[in-house]
Amino acid sequence: MTRQKPKTRKNILITGASSGLGAGMARKFAAMDRNLALCARRTDRLEALAAELRATYPGITVLIKPLDINDHDQVFSVFREFRDELGTLDRVIANAGLGKGQPLGTGHFSANKETLETNTIGLLAQCEAALEIFREQGYGHLVVVSSVSALRGMRGNITAYAASKAAAASLAEGIRSQQHSTDITVTTLLPGYIESEMTARAGKTPLLAPAEKGAQALVASIEREPAKAYVPRWPWAPLAQVMRFAPLSVIRKMG
């Protein structure tokens, strides 16, 4: 059934919401009086986050469900269940992903395979599930979380990760083209280095933004609903233009 597009994206689904960028965005949207549908594999962390948000913002609805995006049938069922419980899904933030990679050819094929399967096929499942709901409603905002590493091939532990994020950006653009002139909006987020468990595992990281600043920048970008956004805008928007044309001798220093 086609519904009227809301002025405010009231009901927001976030995958990978148990920690890091997902949890940070959830806190920011809760402070903006939005209802939240949060899912991730680590249900203990989801439960703690939901309890925190319900206590701090008693006027909003916070729903949680376990979700492994590599269980593709579960992605579709969880998204539909959230939609049924909230009535609509106005925005879906496809944030869940994996950064578990190793240099190619060093005997860690399984880790690189898992990263690519999670960040590409798992993302595809999220996009398909969201779009089915949006097409039925007649509107919706799909947010695909890619990365500035998508701009170029990267070396070392993030070769597979960067390739998966390039696929994510391409997928989002294709969906955006398909939904042109409809009330289904698609935003590609390309975060730079933002403090999280993933960046902590990577060791020393240049130009690392604090988690609070990163979450605020992500939510501000999402609210504007652009086609594409580098986050935080400074320094990543200008650096992205440099990255596109810099020689590999420069790019490899970023990996």
Rank of each mutant, 00 (worst) to 15 (best):
A125N: 08
S110N: 10
H141M: 07
G153F: 02
S181I: 01
V148K: 03
A129L: 04
G107L: 13
S196K: 05
S146M: 07
T187W: 05
D183L: 04
Q137I: 14
H141E: 10
Y193E: 11
L207Y: 03
A168Q: 03
T182R: 10
G105Q: 05
K113S: 13
G122L: 08
R176D: 12
V148Q: 13
S181P: 02
L171Y: 10
S147A: 04
P206V: 11
L190V: 02
S196I: 06
G174V: 13
F109D: 15
I184Q: 05
V145I: 15
L123K: 09
L124F: 09
L104C: 08
A166T: 12
G192F: 06
A150E: 10
A168T: 05
S181W: 03
A111R: 08
S147T: 11
G174F: 14
G153R: 04
G140T: 01
R152H: 12
G99H: 06
M198A: 06
I194K: 01
G107A: 11
G138W: 08
T188F: 00
I158K: 05
I194M: 00
L190N: 10
G122T: 07
A125Y: 08
A163C: 13
L189T: 12
T188M: 00
M198Q: 02
D183Y: 00
L123H: 04
S196R: 01
I184L: 09
R155E: 11
A166C: 12
I121H: 14
E197P: 01
E195R: 03
A160Q: 04
N112W: 06
T182V: 07
H180Q: 13
F134V: 07
L190D: 07
R201V: 04
G156C: 05
S181N: 09
L104H: 12
G153H: 00
K113M: 12
L189A: 13
